[in-house]
Every structure is written in structure tokens, then in C-alpha cells.
């Protein structure tokens, strides 16, 4: 997907979706000792119309919890999500018209589609809930239109999800998300469950939909190359916080945070000639989000860490190339 040249003027435009200081802790049951799982601990982000914001991170970094809060499936303990300046979480729950404008595509199309509903019923459900089509005739026409939009043949709408391949199922999930004409689609690992040869089809579909419909995407994935490919801007998460954020070219081309450097260095590349290049090898696994380390969360695995890192938690500050590129590291400048 060609991240089209950045047309956004940060001052002139309001973000469609904004998250401020989001926190979410899952409390354990009776048996859990200590605190709960601190999945997201203070995340800010802004999403502008027509752009793709990529979120990368390893398992347990809180990226799926963040996704669920951004669509209102999960209520943050602290902080706020706003859609065009209007708060998501009111006393009466998420207002219906906001729900309609912010949709989600899930990772596993087989578990996120009801196996006992036909494709027509799956895609028509949001139309019914939001009263977007009057009469069964209009409903069928609209479903057919949506299926065509995602590259499926409308005459298969009376079939069930299991009759489709993985890539086609993901297209059904995308058609369902598009049904309400959303301004924002949050995609949580939308291509990770797909075969390599099919991934590219779905990635290209997202690009095309963004071009034709102008929808803004939050694209969450663990595959660094896919995120680079689809995103205008990228956020790198580690243990519930954003370690680095900025334009995709800046974050990938000149990473400022040691964690981003390590991630990029560890990613396997399909180039046998680069075998045996020097790589940054991190020791151990990411710490548990039940008891994140004090200070900088990455200091236990970081080769640049000093005493200061164990005590003072760094905040996001403009990186070496300034502008939109921010990193949360005491030694970000030295890191480049």
C-alpha cells in the first residue's frame, strides 16, 4: 500500500480519533496476588482523516487492549477517547452514532464470524442495528454492493463462513466493518492469520479502500514489514506504553529508541546474503505486565541502560530529527 504523500497539516486539521492518557488494568480473580495485569499504562494517540497509523509491538505489550478501547469495546480505567472532539464513554455507554463511525476488523476471521449466520446476515446485521437500509430488498442490494467492494461475488451471500477460504473470510469481516460507512476502522492483526500468498491481497485491499473511501485506519500488527508497508505514521509499544512514534520513514529509517532498534534488527529478512550480519540480540523475554519494571520499562533488557533508567521513567520527547518523531528514552539522542 503506498502510504500516499503526507497531505496532512497538523495544525489545520482536527484528529478524527484522539486518545489521551489511556490506562487499563485487568484485575485478577481471588487467586491472583498483587495487582492486576497492567495492559495499557498511559497511551496518547491521534488519528487524522484518511491516514493509517500502524501500531507494532510484541505479545503482551497492550496493543490489542488499546484497539478494544479505541472502538469502545473496553472502558479505560483512566483517560479518554474522543471522536471528533466528542467523548466515547458517557454514562449511557458509547453513543450509537460514534459506534457507527468507528468499526473494527478482528484477527481471526473464523472466530469473529458467527458460523450459523449466512454471509448476508453477517454483513446486514450492522445495517439493521443502525437502521441503514429499509426493507429486505434494499438490504440485499446494499450487502451485494459491500461484498463487491471487498472483491467477493454477491451471489455467494447465502453461504456460510466455513465455505470460504481464510482470505475471503477476512474480506467478509471487512465488508461488515464497512457497512456503516465508518470514518475509522481499527484492525487488530488483520492479516496475521492468513497465508503468505493471501496476505498481500488483503493488504492491497485496505490500501484501495483507503484511497477510494478515505477511511482512516489504525493497523495493529506484530509484523514490522507489513506495518511499514501500510502506515503513514507508526507507534512502537512496549509493556503498555508507547516507546517511539513518528512518521513511518523516520521510525524505520532512523529509530531513536533502543527497543525499536532491537526489534528492527531482530526481524528476519528474506535476503540470504544478509545472513550473519551483526544484530542486536536482546537477552530474555519481555517482563510480565503484572509487575512492570520501575523507571523505563525497557531498562532490564536495554544495553544502554544506566541507573537513571531504573529510577526515572522517560516521557515521549522529540527525537533527533525533531518534528513529529518522538521517543521515550533518556538516551534517545545518543541512540541514533
Amino acid at each position: 500500500m503506498a502510504p500516499s504523500p503526507d497531505v496532512r497539516e497538523p495544525e489545520a486539521r482536527e484528529p478524527v480519533l484522539r486518545a489521551v492518557d489511556l490506562h487499563k488494568t485487568y484485575r485478577g480473580g481471588l487467586l491472583s496476588r498483587g495487582g492486576g495485569v497492567r495492559a495499557v499504562a498511559g497511551v496518547d494517540l491521534e488519528l487524522y482523516a484518511g491516514e493509517t497509523l500502524g501500531i507494532v509491538g510484541e505479545s503482551g505489550c497492550g496493543k490489542s487492549t488499546l484497539a478494544r478501547m479505541l472502538v469502545g469495546l473496553e472502558r479505560p480505567d483512566q483517560g479518554e477517547v474522543t471522536f471528533r472532539g466528542r467523548p466515547f464513554f458517557t454514562r449511557g455507554g458509547v453513543p450509537r452514532d460514534i459506534r457507527r463511525r468507528v468499526q473494527m476488523v478482528f484477527q481471526d476471521p473464523l472466530t469473529s464470524l458467527n458460523p450459523r449466520m449466512t454471509v448476508h446476515d453477517i454483513v446486514a446485521e450492522p445495517l439493521r442495528v443502525h437502521r441503514l437500509a429499509q426493507g429486505s430488498r434494499a438490504m440485499r442490494d446494499r450487502v451485494g454492493e459491500l461484498l463487491t467492494l471487498v472483491g467477493l461475488s454477491p451471489d455467494r451471500m447465502n453461504r456460510f463462513p466455513h465455505e470460504f477460504s481464510g482470505g475471503q473470510r477476512q474480506r467478509i469481516g471487512i465488508a461488515r466493518a464497512l457497512a456503516t460507512e465508518p470514518d475509522v476502522i481499527v484492525c487488530d492483526e488483520p492479516v496475521s492469520a492468513l497465508d503468505m500468498s493471501v496476505q498481500a491481497q488483503v493488504v492491497n485491499l485496505f490500501a484501495e479502500l483507503q484511497r477510494t473511501l478515505g477511511v482512516a485506519l489504525v493497523f495493529i500488527a506484530h509484523d514490522l514489514a507489513v506495518v511499514r508497508h501500510v502506515s503513514h505514521r507508526v507507534g512502537v509499544m512496549y509493556l503498555g506504553r508507547v516507546a517511539e512514534t513518528g512518521p513511518a520513514a523516520g521510525v524505520y529509517g532512523a529509530p531513536a529508541h533502543p527497543y525499536t532498534m532491537a526489534l528492527l534488527s531482530a526481524a528476519p529478512v528474506p535476503k540470504p546474503r544478509l545472513k550473519g550480519r551483526s544484530r542486536i540480540m536482546l537477552a530474555g523475554d519481555p517482563p510480565s505486565p503484572v509487575a512492570p519494571p520501575p523507571g523505563c520499562r525497557f531498562h532490564t533488557r536495554c544495553w544502554k541502560a544506566t541507573e537513571r533508567c531504573a529510577e526515572v521513567e522517560p516521557v515521549l520527547e522529540p527525537g533527533p530529527d525533531g518534528g513529529d518523531h518522538h521517543a521515550a528514552c533518556h538516551y534517545a539522542e545518543r541512540a541514533s
Binding site: E58, L263, A266, R279
Partner: peptide, 8 residues
């Protein structure tokens, strides 16, 4: 596994 652990 995660990328950093995969490399290990």
C-alpha cells in the same frame, strides 16, 4: 514467539 525471542 515474538521477534526478539525468535532471533534468540
Amino acid at each position: 514467539l515474538d521477534v526478539t525471542v525468535q532471533a534468540q
